[in-house]
């Protein structure tokens, strides 16, 4: 019944969209490009990507309420970090902060650390400022900053969600080990990116 209704609905939408519609003023230039650019940005920065996944993994490992508090805190504080970058507030060691966040969050998952709720949220928020500051400065260069921001935040949120979905494996004994192993991998990768940032290895 549902697929038939869906098919009817889609056909109806197609039918309605066929007749000519009046011209209206919004050009909304660069929406697709801005969105694609913002969406792909977190996905193409491996240090940012693994830290995002680590937030989701840790949240899932810690359970309620941190499973939703951490992924909700991160985008907000990250955007605040981006705002600081945009208005020119300097922040020391930004480039190091991103890989260090991957190391610390990876270790939290690997060692199954269970801090109080406020401390976990504070830790994630502190790292989020570095991520936001590192990437926020690039927003004005986008053709459509709003579309870029939507893509950027959406991709970040989906990476958290990916981490949560993997982290839900903690419901099984093997899953607990697998999630902790993911934490080890993230921490090691974070160490590599930090070493690359310090010029100790080739990036």
């Amino acid at each position: 019944m549902a697929p038939r209704f869906l098919l009817s609905f889609m056909l109806l939408v197609l039918a309605v969209s066929c007749p000519g519609t009046p011209a209206f003023a919004h050009a909304q230039e660069g929406v697709a490009g801005g969105f694609a650019s913002g969406f792909s940005h977190p996905l193409t920065g491996p240090d940012h990507l693994i830290a995002m996944v680590a937030v989701g993994l840790w949240g899932a490992q810690l359970g309620q309420p941190l499973i939703w508090i951490l992924p909700m805190t991160f985008p907000l504080v990250m955007a605040f970090g981006g705002l600081l970058a945009l208005i020119g507030v300097p922040m020391p060691f930004v480039a190091w902060g991103v890989p260090i966040s991957a190391i610390v969050l990876g270790l939290m998952v690997a060692l199954h650390v269970r801090p109080p709720v406020w401390l976990a949220a504070l830790l994630v928020a502190a790292f989020a400022i570095f991520h936001g500051h590192a990437h926020g400065g690039e927003v004005p260069d986008a053709v459509n900053p709003l579309a870029y921001s939507i893509g950027f935040v959406l991709a970040t949120g989906l990476l958290h969600l990916a981490g949560i979905l993997v982290g839900l494996a903690v419901a099984w004994p093997m899953g607990v080990r697998a999630v902790r192993a993911c934490g080890v991998v993230i921490a090691v990768l974070g160490g590599y990116f930090l070493a690359a940032q310090m010029g100790m290895v080739g990036a």
């Binding site: 985008p75 907000l76 955007a79 705002l83 927003v139 900053p145 921001s149 949120g157």
Partner: peptide
């Protein structure tokens, strides 16, 4: 969570505006 994303988007765009 969608609310946190919307607020984050707003913060970034406010920054661009500034």
């Amino acid at each position: 969570a969608a609310g946190s994303w919307i607020a984050a988007i707003g913060l970034l765009v406010v920054g661009v505006k500034l």
